[in-house]
């Protein structure tokens, strides 16, 4: 049923937007463009910082902003495969590593803000905060899980690990769920924004699961 709705409504627009085969030159120019685009959130923080415009609580502002963009990059990364499933186009997949690493980059800034600007590297307080507060524990776990993914993101490791690499990188789904739960639990009462993120993640995972189930069934012509 949902596939039928998609076929009848958005599919045409999706195919136009993700045009069949962009030229090589265009693809590499788009890579540079995407790279610069992903740096804007960081540039913005510096700009606001120099202008003393990081709100009354600058540490919280930087902490929130870097966390937010890390989650955003993760969701963008996770949307590339569903686009393939929905349109059959594959060229967007070549930016997956770069976007994934930007997620890691903003996560590193997020953690650094927490450890340094928020807790001044006072480890007793940090450990206590992580143990006592579920949302911090969930966030810390998510970050630790990104480390092996970042370390194995180069071509050498991909060749070395082969099939195990794919298995390892399935961790990204767990990281995404932990990330959204981290956001959901830290918010005091107004959970509209984290719920939006949860909904987007559910949609992205739902598309995968849907096609997975479909591909296990006897072949049907969907594309």
């Amino acid at each position: 049923m949902p596939a039928w709705i998609y076929e009848k409504t958005f599919k045409a627009q999706m195919l136009v937007f993700f045009s069949k085969a962009p030229s090589k030159e265009w693809l590499s120019r788009f890579r540079v463009f995407l790279f610069l685009l992903c740096l804007i959130p960081l540039a913005r923080l510096f700009w606001l910082g120099f202008n003393d415009d990081l709100s009354a609580n600058p540490v919280e502002f930087v902490e929130r902003s870097t966390g937010y963009w890390s989650l955003f990059m993760l969701l963008v990364t996770l949307s590339l495969s569903p686009i393939r499933l929905l349109t059959g186009r594959t060229w967007q997949l070549q930016y997956r590593r770069m976007l994934g690493l930007f997620m890691f980059f903003y996560a590193c800034l997020h953690i650094t803000t927490y450890l340094w600007l928020d807790y001044s590297f006072i480890w007793v307080d940090i450990v206590k905060d992580i143990i006592k507060h579920p949302y911090v524990l969930v966030g810390a776990s998510a970050f630790l899980l990104t480390l092996p993914l970042a370390i194995t993101s180069n071509n050498f490791m991909i060749r070395l690990l082969r099939e195990r690499w794919k298995l390892l990188h399935n961790l990204v789904y767990l990281i995404a769920i932990l990330g959204v739960v981290h956001f959901l639990w830290l918010v005091k009462k107004d959970i509209r924004e984290p719920l939006l993120y949860a909904a987007i993640l559910a949609l992205l995972l739902g598309i995968r699961i849907y096609y997975k189930i479909l591909s296990n069934k006897p072949k049907r012509n969907l594309m």
Binding site: A56, L117, S120, H133
Partner: peptide, 22 residues
């Protein structure tokens, strides 16, 4: 007395700046 969300043993003083700590 702990709170399930926030550290209660220390606090951030508003206006102290980005590098002031707790």
């Amino acid at each position: 007395v702990e709170h399930p969300r926030w550290t209660q043993s220390s606090e951030k003083r508003i206006g102290a700046g980005l590098f002031a700590g707790r």
